[in-house]
């Protein structure tokens, strides 16, 4: 028996919005520790890694490890039927071929349930080694989304250069070029407004705008985003989901021919 209850359906809606650009379907691996998902996009250039800890749920029970393959568009349809502040309970029997989502309104006057067929997905998992990154940048998630959106108008790729002084986002295309520099904040009123850089070595890497834009669909989940970079390894873009877990995206850098 698997049962996970979350007080506000909106959190799950935001997670779905953050991954359905990149993934059509995905396997949710459920264990006593929580729910995990690791999946690459169709082109195998980026990877989504989601972890929701069991202690972040209002109620969580997982008697046996279970992998639920789900179509994310179907799941989105179901979650669109819930109000943001509905409590959601996800339930499945052991070895079941369906999963049930139950939504309860705050005053309990409306209870709805939706049963969805599970899929058998043959998903490849990648072993991702722990890396000491040369640069770790923390910045407001909204600012990162804004910069990626702005620069995407001018080119297909964004060059991210990080030094101790700050981080620079650059692009160029048919109409010209664009640069956005962010300095590390020396003082800030609110922690979520800070730009903080931890640098061992300066790094410059180039990434496709298309994927960076998809990652920023996670912006509503967190105030801050963390970018981790080292030469010749994939970028990690991480959003912490408050009190519940994290959503990480990996993106292979572009390489000079």
């Amino acid at each position: 028996m698997f049962e996970a209850r979350l007080i506000n359906s909106v959190t799950f809606k935001k997670v779905l919005d953050a991954i359905k650009d990149l993934l059509n379907e995905a396997s949710f691996d459920c264990s006593e520790a929580g729910i995990q998902l690791q999946a690459m996009d169709n082109s195998h250039v980026s990877l989504v890694s989601l972890a929701l800890r069991s202690d972040g749920f209002d109620k969580y029970r997982c008697d046996r490890n279970l992998t639920m393959g789900m179509n994310l568009a179907s799941m989105s349809k179901i979650f669109r039927c819930s109000s943001n502040d509905d409590t959601v309970t996800i339930k499945a029997q052991d070895d079941a071929d369906t999963v049930t989502f139950m939504f309860e309104s705050k005053k309990q006057e409306k209870i709805s349930d939706y049963e969805m067929k599970l899929m058998n997905l043959d998903q490849e998992h990648l072993g991702i080694p722990d890396t000491d990154f040369s640069c770790v940048i923390r910045m407001p998630a909204g600012e990162f989304a804004r910069i990626v959106r702005d620069l995407s108008q001018f080119g297909e790729s964004i060059v991210i250069s990080c030094t101790k002084e700050g981080v620079k986002f650059s692009t160029s295309g048919d109409i010209g070029s664009a640069n956005v520099k962010l300095a590390q904040t020396s003082s800030f009123e609110k922690e979520e407004e800070a730009v903080i850089i931890e640098m061992q070595e300066p790094v410059t890497l180039t990434f496709a705008c298309q994927y960076l834009n998809s990652f920023t669909k996670a912006t509503p989940l967190a105030n801050q985003v963390q970018l981790s970079m080292s030469d010749n390894v994939p970028l990690v873009v991480e959003y912490q989901i408050p009190d519940l877990g994290h959503l990480r995206y990996y993106l292979a850098p572009k390489i000079e021919e």
């Binding site: 998992h125 990648l126 991702i128 292979a252």
Partner: peptide
């Protein structure tokens, strides 16, 4: 010219 490698150029399949 820049080339877009896949993640398998960096990570091994489990």
């Amino acid at each position: 010219v820049q080339n877009q490698p896949t993640l398998m150029n960096f990570f091994k399949k489990k």
